[in-house]
Design a protein around this nucleic acid. Sequence first.
RNA 1: CGGGAUGUGGCUCAGUCUGGUAGAGCACAGCGUUCGGGACGCUGGGGCCGGAGGUUCGAAUCCUCUCAUCCCGACCA
Length: 570
Amino acid sequence: MRYSQTFIPTLKENPAEAQVVSHRLMLRAGFIRKLTSGIYTYLPYGLAAIRNVEQIVREEMNRAGALELAMPMVQPADLWKESGRYEKYGPELLRFTDRHDRESCLGPTHEEVITDIARMELHSYRDVPVNFYQIQTKFRDEIRPRFGLMRGREFIMKDAYSFDVDDAGASEAYQKMYDAYCRIFERCGLRYRAVQADSGAIGGNFSHEFMVLADTGEDTIVICKDCEYAANMEKAEVKLRGGKADAALLDMEKVETPGKRKVNSVCEFMQISPSQLVKTMVYLADGEPVAVLLRGDREVEEVKLANLLGAVEVEIAEDKQVFDATGVPTGYLGPVGISIKVVADQEVMTMTNFVVGANEKNYHLKNVNSGRDFEVSAVADLRQITTDDPCPVCGGTLELTQGIEVGHVFKLGTKYSEAMKAMFVDADGEEKPLVMGCYGIGVSRVVAAAIEQNHDNDGIIFPVPIAPYKVTVLNLGTNDETITAAAEKLYQELKNRKIEVLLDDRDERPGAKFKDAELLGIPYRLNVGKSYLNNGVIELVNRRSGEKSEYPLDQVVSVIEQEIASQTTS
RNA sequence: CGGGAUGUGGCUCAGUCUGGUAGAGCACAGCGUUCGGGACGCUGGGGCCGGAGGUUCGAAUCCUCUCAUCCCGACCA
């Protein structure tokens, strides 16, 4: 492609609306333009990157035996009522009525539609296993879209759905997708990690998220330095070290603690460490207040709490809600004599003679002991893991890192097939629900994640496989016949060899061309200018390493061809 | 939905406190000089200052309401 013939509107300055690097660079490099919050137009250069990712995804899905189809974006509400999600999904599901007053919605995901296909078309064990996928624009009316393509309301997603006769078959389908995902992210040239993910109500260890490692990631993941264990922090299991201390139980005592509400100020006042205090946090679990007990220096992992309580939604209660539920101002809450349900982090049960709030303003209790002074209705792992905790698998050392979720594989079981009656007849003549799995990749997010992970102060540094152009040829003397002829020759030669190339033939000064080439992140740059006139050589610049080398005109194309081949797998 | 911020030409912003009829740089068009790290000079086009109401002789500026965008939180691929 000639730069003069395409449309890549680059910006010199950072747009005020973009804070994160991928968003900023996508705007500056002419990838996208915003139409409204969370909704973007993909301009030619950005679309090319997206298409490259799509192509890799498509090839690997096909290789894994999945079948591509395309489902409608507009879906009837009735279907969603059948699965029960019309009520449960919340305002993220954009609903509307058509001219006939039929309730409809925009598909944020397609379990309902595919299950409808399955129940109409899959009747026998002979019809499965089968796995359908599509690459399509999804719409989710996010509460707060942000970070450009990273969390848009409209985004491109590959979603796949597998159908099997039993759990063993579903596990096989799951593993196939897991393997395909590894190939996909490897082929994209990304540093990523597959981590165990929370699987919510369905349970089991059959949910993995694929995380691109980048500091700006919204998720925290836990990785063991000593074994293969890796998990989303939401899921990472805290293993208790040591049992209950064998200390003598002292008599409980009430202490006046005027104005001391925060863990730190209570500890300072009472001359204890936060590990000797148990804090009482009130959460609303689907609206019901629950007190959560936790060592003073720990943090609640809300996902674990929600799972324990079987709640769809848990949120920390506001001060007023706490007072309404317990009659106690926040800061002085404790489990002794409290009126609401109490659950405890497992660690609390190993503590003795600790400090809690007295359920009375300006008082705390010391030498409190569970069992003797209060009871709890459930004990579980409820806190966030830390790097001080051992690996739950091997006991080794953990590290925390940030990741961007780009893929998710999930065993669904029979949740949808049962609700929507997608049944088949097994070899034994019995009617059974199909066993399902679902598998998503955020295609547009992959591009954003790739930029988050691969950039420098000058712009994007595309991994070769997803770069819209692998090479850019800079004509640094558009008024010079010799230079222009050489640049044109290189351009033709690269095109002949089917290498995607951008020829910068614009009437711009060299500096502007260098800057744009770096901003766009094209992996290899060929400078055709003074050094060609003077020494007959073409400069090859590697965008990532900055390394510069010189080759005669008739050799440089072969060098590039080899370089690209070494970084591409198919 | 709570907290914070911002809306002035295509972009980045000044002007708002202290009201007097709209500016700079970049971008764009023309001409000339330039041409290996986002050139320079001259000329030119482009803005009912987010919107509505109000105060005032007079509002980008003050007041009220509203809309939009961004950030933090909640929430969420």
